[in-house]
């Protein structure tokens, strides 16, 4: 299984998580979507040298994971798996920004290191919140929320169909390439010519499938409009969830709690 295969297994797993049951799962997806969006905006709105003020924000993903009964280890692993890109771009910062920002005993900490750390913190926060959101909501509910928030229907329907057929088609691709390698007999690389044959055949099959799906839709009265069932409702719990967290986020955004806490503690130590 290559990286994509693993990613797909993840979609399946996250679907299973989303099928779970907790008060968080039952919340209207719009409330969760909006709250997570506010969370991300608050986190990324800090200046690039901010680290300590970002820390309280981890309360939100921690809350989602704990209250949604999500496997924390799995999410952490997933974040680590996708982190190389953030590391790659951030890692130049220490080299490029060498101005000493503060002195920790004999150690001079440059701005580059601080901003690097900040990038990593942002990355961990935003990614964990997004993953947790999906794991307690599921793509279908997210799509329903998007539709009801005014996202154009052709796009939402496209997302739903894409999600529906990812497994069918990647399964086909996997079987094709396995069939190829079984008849190759030695670990030979896929040549460009064979590659084109594989992809071309896959594409033809895909288009045939599209035609069959279209016919199946016609047979059940499809007239160009997909009608989506509405399940969710905005109630008191949704409003409380979104408002409550918004208050937290704005407090975290404008009051540096860790700094105050740290000063109080270091003050006591003195």
């Amino acid at each position: 299984m290559n990286k994509l295969g693993k990613n797909l297994a993840d979609i399946g797993y996250m679907d299973t998580l989303a099928a779970g049951d907790s008060p968080l799962h039952r919340l209207d997806p719009r409330a969760k979507l909006l709250t997570t969006f506010l969370f991300i905006v608050s986190v990324v709105s800090f200046n690039k040298y901010e680290v300590s003020a970002l820390v309280p924000f981890c309360l939100y993903p921690v809350f989602l994971v704990a209250a949604g009964k999500l496997p924390a280890g799995y999410l952490v692993k997933k974040i680590l798996l996708v982190s190389p890109f953030a590391v790659l771009v951030g890692v130049f910062n220490p080299a490029l920004d060498r101005q000493i920002l503060f002195q920790l005993g004999p150690l001079g900490i440059s701005g580059g290191w601080v901003s690097f750390l900040s990038i990593l913190a942002r990355f961990a926060l935003t990614v964990s919140a997004a993953l947790a959101l999906l794991s307690i909501t599921g793509i279908n509910s997210v799509c329903e929320a998007l539709l009801r928030c005014g996202v154009p229907k052709p796009f939402v329907v496209q997302l739903l169909f894409l999600n529906r057929y990812i497994f069918a088609l990647t399964g086909e691709a996997e079987r094709m390439s396995r069939a190829r390698s079984l008849r190759t007999f030695r670990p030979a690389a896929v040549s460009f010519r064979v590659f084109i044959q594989l992809i071309g055949n896959l594409l033809l099959r895909t288009m045939d499938r599209a035609e069959r799906v279209y016919r199946a839709m016609l047979c059940r009265g499809f007239d160009g409009h997909i009608r989506v069932v509405r399940f969710s409702k905005i109630g008191r719990r949704e409003i409380a969830f979104t408002l409550g967290w918004s208050v937290f986020f704005s407090v975290f955004r404008f009051v540096n709690i860790p700094l105050m806490l740290g000063q109080a503690v270091t003050g006591l130590l003195k």
């Binding site: 279908n140 069959r212 799906v213 199946a216 059940r220 499809f222 009608r227 989506v228 069932v229």
Partner: peptide, 20 residues
């Protein structure tokens, strides 16, 4: 797989009914 194109079982069975 060609026939079950909606995201969940419920929605798939509802597809034709909603069109009606």
């Amino acid at each position: 797989d060609d026939q079950l194109f909606m995201p969940t079982v419920f929605e798939d069975v509802a597809f034709g009914l909603l069109n009606l």
